[in-house]
Design a protein around this nucleic acid. Structure first.
Length: 599
RNA sequence: GGUUCGGUAGCUCAGUUGGAUUAGAGCAGCAGCCUUCUAAGCUGCGGGUCAAGGGUUCGAGCCCCUUCCGAAUCACCA
């Protein structure tokens, strides 16, 4: 049993015996004792004053005496400061706790079984007309991390992606490619497929704007010009042909999408994310129409005179929402309904989480209500994991204005910076091959990028300054990775010296406060994982890892491990170090960040 | 205007169900520490009216109300 649980139980008994009252466990507040006082755990006695009808100090002393009297094997001493009862815990308890953590490779994780709830997480969800940028990177990293966190909390997780592969934006790229592409392919130009398509999307926009400007100069109203520019009309014609299944258009569409997917796969692989099931909007949008028709027949929705279909959400405090256009084509919402239908056919989903930017908060509020009305049992409680935008120093990223941070560029830069960084190091590693150095640079560069994004509270907007780029010092991924590598180095050396840490540690006579504090921190991993799962917030894991490692670093500089004379202490510190590295590895693993054995 | 979300050091961000005279990191600035388990590190200094005001209570950065500032959204776009 954990130390905290033992004490909570004893305190409950104390209150019962001393004051004759039954208190709920939640009233027993235990926290770490502040460094300036003696003790490791502190009980806050204020909540019990109403029962004891005594001063805080007296109440604390009574409870303290009771604990030392009844559970001396746990609480060896106590002191009272104001309403705070500081408890000194028997060292053997801390050793037990460390053992428990060390012997459970999956410490902090709830096992997943066949009966565990099935959670589906949708993330990434790219458009196929342009390459991924920093905003997508945030989405992908958050989605992946959240999936890991949900799984660590005992859920069966299905990671899914809905690819937005149809619509006017694709037609724009296709049209531009037909007009100005001269048959360019990824092979002929050496460009990554998604970038190639993105370039034509930009080209379309450029020519289109020129056309609009020309029409306006000729005296046309701007709104009208935007609708009547020949290019946009052509794109619309192409979209109609696509919907009609025109073989030529479909063939081109298919071919260009393949290029894009090949490009995306490369980026996903570099980011270390993957999916269990991918849906394509071209396959789901018709399902949505069907579902809307069904709702129409059930009287959930209504049709206007022009033929458009609407849902009236005013009773829910929202507005009316369009579900089908007057020409019968579907809108975004329709597609999401269709996708939901297919997903539910494929998996018995208990909970659905959508990782989508906060600009779509309203959309998901509406979607939740609509899915609920349509009878999806997880509709009402669907989670929109809403994250903030990535901002640049001079405002937001706008692909049309070219103020984007391209994902592939960023990844490449991070890795080469990491490579440079290790080359500049004074004590660089000897005897490693070029491949190993490159692999370390990849792990460290990606770790820097991932940690930089994941340490920030997901729902907040975050700022990325490309000029300053991403740091490798301080509160960063590489700092954590570095500490891990150092611990692994110590463990390797210990093994070389033939030192093995036994399953049962000798009871060291004396454990320093810093060591106890580390054990407590390690145990806190469990709470951090649970909290992150409840709040859908991977950033808590990131910050947990940083604080643990920060503390270990201070420990590292004040204490020696291998050079410790006392054999028992040495073993204890080795075990402690090993446990830190294990928890760090697991924590970073949840974030999708690898840790290197050397760096 | 309605709705939702934010506001903590010069900058980027933490702050776990409300807890202890002194609200924490990192970056940037200054000063120290590598014949010692990896210096991508450690130590010290300076830097704050936690947007403002009120309330709840033993106790508020955190909970409630009002105001100010910022963002997103409110399309037959996705």
């Amino acid at each position: 049993m954990k130390i905290e649980e033992k004490i909570v139980g004893a305190v409950e008994a104390a209150i019962k015996e001393l004051y004759g009252q039954q208190v709920p466990a939640s009233m027993v507040q235990l926290q770490e004792t502040r460094a300036e006082f003696e003790g490791q755990l502190t009980l806050v006695v204020f909540p019990f004053l109403k029962m004891s009808r005594k001063k805080p100090e007296d109440t604390a002393r009574e409870i303290g005496e009771y604990l030392v009297g009844k559970v001396p094997e746990v609480v060896s001493r106590f002191n009272v400061i104001k309403g705070f009862l500081n408890l000194t815990i028997n060292p053997a308890q801390w050793i037990d706790l460390l053992q428990e953590i060390r012997q459970d490779q999956q410490f902090g994780f709830v096992p997943v079984t066949e009966e565990s709830p099935l959670v589906m997480i949708e993330y990434s969800s790219p458009n196929t007309n342009k390459p991924l940028h920093l905003g997508h990177v945030r989405n992908n990293l958050l989605g992946w991390a959240l999936a890991n966190v949900m799984q660590a909390n005992g859920n069966r997780v299905v990671k899914t992606n809905i690819v937005n592969d149809r619509g006017i934006h694709i037609c724009k790229s296709m049209l531009a490619w037909l007009k100005w592409g001269n048959g360019e392919t990824p092979e002929s130009s050496g460009k990554k497929g998604d970038h190639l398509i993105g370039d034509y999307y930009v080209a379309f926009d450029k020519h289109y704007r020129e056309e609009v400007a020309r029409l306006v100069a000729q005296g046309m109203d701007e709104e009208q010009a935007k609708q009547e520019a020949p290019l946009i009309r052509e794109a619309h014609e192409m979209l109609v042909k696509w919907e009609q299944g025109d073989p030529e258009v479909r063939a081109l569409w298919k071919r260009m999408n393949e290029w894009v997917y090949a490009g995306f796969d490369q980026t996903y692989k570099a980011l270390g994310v993957a999916f269990d099931k991918i849906y394509y909007e071209s396959e789901t949008y018709l399902e949505g129409k069907e579902k809307v028709e069904e709702g129409l027949q059930k009287g959930l929705f209504y049709r206007r005179e022009d033929g458009s279909v609407w849902a009236d959400l005013r009773p829910e405090g929202l507005d009316e929402k369009l579900l089908l256009r007057s020409d019968g084509t579907s809108v975004y919402m329709t597609q999401d309904i269709g996708t939901a239908k297919l997903r539910f056919q494929d998996y018995p989903i208990d909970k659905m989480i959508y990782v989508v930017g906060n600009e779509q908060n309203y959309h998901f509020q509406v979607l939740s209500i609509l899915l609920d009305k349509l009878g999806f049992r997880w509709g009402r409680d669907l989670v929109h994991f809403s994250y903030g935008m990535v901002e640049l120093p001079n405002g937001k990223m706008k692909s049309r204005e070219g103020t984007v941070v391209d994902a592939d560029d960023l990844i490449a830069t991070m890795i080469s910076d990491a490579r440079q960084m290790s080359a500049d190091k004074v004590n660089k590693l000897e005897d490693i091959t070029d491949e190993e150095a490159q692999e370390i640079a990849r792990i460290v560069g990606m770790g820097a990028l991932k940690y930089f994004i994941l340490k920030v509270d997901a729902r907040k907007n975050m700022l990325f300054n490309p000029e300053e780029s991403i740091d490798f010092n301080g509160n960063t991924g590489p700092f954590i990775q570095y500490t891990y590598a150092r611990i692994r180095s110590i463990l390797r050396k210990a093994a070389e010296q033939g030192i093995e840490v036994p399953d049962s540690l000798p009871a060291a006579a004396e454990i320093s406060d810093r060591e106890i504090s580390l054990v407590q921190h390690l145990y806190g991993f469990k709470a951090a994982v649970r909290q992150a799962g409840q709040d859908y917030n991977p950033s808590q894991i990131a910050n947990y890892c940083y604080e643990l490692v920060k503390e270990y670093n201070q420990f590292y500089h004040d204490f020696s491990v291998l050079r410790e004379e006392d054999a028992d202490k040495k073993l204890f510190r080795l075990a402690l170090s090993a446990a830190v590295s294990q928890v760090v590895k697991n924590g970073m693993g949840l974030l999708g960040i690898e840790v290197p054995e050397r760096m």
